[in-house]
Design a binder for these strands. Structure first.
Length: 486
RNA sequence: GGGGCGGUAGCUCAGCCGGUCAGAGCAUCGGACUCAUAAUCCGUGGGUCGUGGGUUCAAGUCCCACCCGCCCUACCA
């Protein structure tokens, strides 16, 4: 047996948003969180698949296209491209981007799952009030979410799924921890919901009402598959060939990230669907809360303040990612303001990290002719690896980012304590070698959070062929006062 | 209607099983330093821990009621 430790593979997904509009900061939050997890686990040597994408088949897309007066295909393509285009500006490292309307294996995959759950499907005549906004039926109006569109009276034959029979199995899974739901508040919510008893759910819609958009029900072309049934399946349909075995069956960790609004679909419907189909289940569900922007709910009308690309253009990707990671609590909504973004970036990145690297490198040049005597290093405990790992295991991105920031503060205190400029040459070597080491550690620790900035830090403290550090240059400019609000 | 979460210094928040838990960061004020992006480091002030009861030798920390904000769920017609 080889002594190499086994590295637990990890499959990380975000939800696939419907694309009736361009992405906003809330989408960026989920993507960046997933990205941090992906990079963190890759760094630990674990195989990672990080997948995201778009739900193209939602009826809301059809309605948005009608409102705009453009073909659905065109609107969906355009907005899906905007989501995929987040990759560059936000420094995302997803391995796969699935679009439910065009992924080569998706439709066939949905059809297979449909067949596999057929023993739990039955036709039932249904009359009810349908809210287009929620894509859901309600016994009576008005729509609890306050969608403006009036509820439509609908009378049709639909396919129903015997969700009711999975109550006990779901409770066992969640209580037993095989399906981990974080934070605990959300877990309790799901348990309460399931304990109260589950009704069978409708999993198809008439094709006419869906304007022919979506995936036809196998053997019943008059119906299309309920969009959630379709969308949830992406987590497995995107896994083609051996990928399905590798990332879904061979017991990797499988973690779904999502906003609190869609927890029921992921923690109840989706596991039940998989149980019915005889397929393996996800192992973890992490639920984040919502963002508001300048005190208001984020919506299409809230304007540029919530446009992640505009924010990156104005302030840089480091500032945007850092705000999302350092200021958003694990539990509870968070209010985004440009003021907070600027303050946090200047405080932590410019005055903290950037200034630290700059002062260290400057001293190396002034006192040591740019050379770093590595063997002289003092064993300062600049260790945060464990703290970061523990925080990320708990999906506590803020605690993890704070742990990295603590290293910056530690190093700055070390400078004040040792005062290298007042030391004799031998002492300067020790102090500066120690500090350069701290900066290199920082570059490593920062990578999952701010990959590009981390690379700049690494380059700033990397010796060239002659063993010299590059000339110091500011790594982060101060943002306060330097930019017009978005 | 039922269930749950939150209400702690000006601001954002930590405080798990009750006893240095009255804290951190920012902001304010004072000091130090000069290597650095007028950056950094040290220290100070400030709070009846939502309200009112209760349990206890001892309660932000447990119990009850109420007020405020929010979430989930249901629909009592």
């Amino acid at each position: 047996m080889s002594g190499a430790p086994w590295r637990h593979p990890m499959y990380i997904t975000t939800t696939i948003p419907y694309v009736n509009a361009r992405p906003h900061l809330g989408h960026a939050l989920e993507l960046v969180q997933a990205d941090v997890l992906a990079r963190h686990h890759r760094r630990r040597g674990e195989p990672v698949r990080f997948q995201t994408g778009t739900d193209d088949n939602s009826l809301k897309n059809v309605l948005a296209a009608e409102t705009e007066g453009v073909p659905v295909r065109e609107l969906v393509d355009r907005n899906a491209a905007a989501f995929e285009g987040l990759r560059g500006p936000l420094d995302l490292s997803f391995d796969a981007f699935i679009r439910t309307s065009s992924h080569p294996g998706h439709r066939a995959g949905v059809e297979r799952i449909w067949e596999a759950t057929r023993h739990d499907l039955y036709l039932r005549h249904y009359e009810g009030l349908y809210c287009v906004g929620c894509e859901q039926f309600y016994p009576a109006g008005p729509c609890p979410d306050g969608h403006e569109a009036p509820l439509q009276p609908v009378s049709e034959q639909n396919w129903f799924f015997r969700l009711s029979r999975y109550r006990d199995a779901l409770l066992d899974l969640i209580r037993g921890g095989r399906l981990r739901i974080e934070p605990a508040v959300r877990r309790n919510e799901v348990l309460a919901f399931v304990e109260a008893g589950l009704d069978d759910i409708s999993v198809s819609r008439s094709a006419a009402r869906a304007r022919g958009w979506g995936i036809p029900v196998p053997g019943d072309p008059g119906q299309v598959v309920y969009v959630w049934w379709d969308a949830l399946a992406n987590y497995v349909t995107a896994l083609q060939g051996g990928d399905y075995e590798r990332w879904w069956v061979a017991e990797p960790r499988k973690v779904h990230l999502m906003g609190k609004g869609v927890i029921r679909f992921h923690a109840v419907y989706w596991p039940a669907m998989l149980l019915s189909a005889g397929r393996p289940l996800p192992t973890g569900i992490f639920v984040h809360d919502y963002l508001t922007a300048e005190g208001r709910k984020i919506s299409k009308s809230s304007g540029g303040a919530a446009d992640p690309v505009a924010l990156v253009d104005a302030y840089g990707v480091a500032a945007v990612r850092w705000w999302l990671l350092r200021e958003v609590p694990r539990v509870g909504d968070a209010d985004f303001t440009e003021e907070r973004l600027v303050a946090r970036a200047d405080e932590d990145l410019a005055n903290g990290l950037g200034n630290l690297v700059n002062r260290v490198v400057t001293m190396v040049h002034r006192f040591l002719d740019g050379r770093v005597p590595v063997e002289a290093r003092e064993e300062e405990p600049f260790e945060v690896d464990e703290a970061v790992h523990e925080a990320l295991e708990a999906f506590d991105f803020r605690r993890a980012a704070t742990a990295v920031q603590a290293l910056v503060e530690q190093a700055n205190r070390y400078v004040e304590r040792t005062r290298p400029w007042a030391l004799p040459p031998a002492g300067q070597e020790v102090a500066l070698a120690t500090l350069v080491h701290a900066c290199r550690t920082l570059a490593v620790q920062l990578e999952p959070f701010l990959p590009t900035a981390a690379a700049r830090v690494a380059a700033a403290v990397r010796a060239n062929a002659e063993g010299r550090l590059p000339r110091p240059e500011p790594l982060f400019r101060r943002l306060a006062g330097s930019r017009q609000p978005v």
